[in-house]
Amino acid sequence: MFNYMTTDYSRVEMKYVYQIEVSGEDMLSLLYHFLDEFLFFFSAEPFFIPRVVQITEFDTEEFKIKARGFGEPFDIHKHPQGTEVKAITYSNMQVHEESEKHDIFVIIDI
């Protein structure tokens, strides 16, 4: 998602850490809120673009996630503009947990 909003992701430096905490009603809504929270802090103060996101707590029974992003404020003079992600959608959202490597499908609105 963030790799899409700038066309040179390597220009994003890890200057500070931003913490988020989200919860959902089920796995899909948790995934939705997790992505939406980071999108929100990109789109409004502090306009934060993470380079790396680390999930620090993941509760699959109560559907809660704590995560921190390492990055900096998005700056159009420093980061080549990509295109804008408007929103996260539930459209055909899928989480496949059967195999060892889980597959996740999310369609974002651009």
Partner: peptide, 9 residues
Amino acid sequence: DHIPVGVGS
């Protein structure tokens, strides 16, 4: 120059 465009503007 007049109209701000693109992501993050």
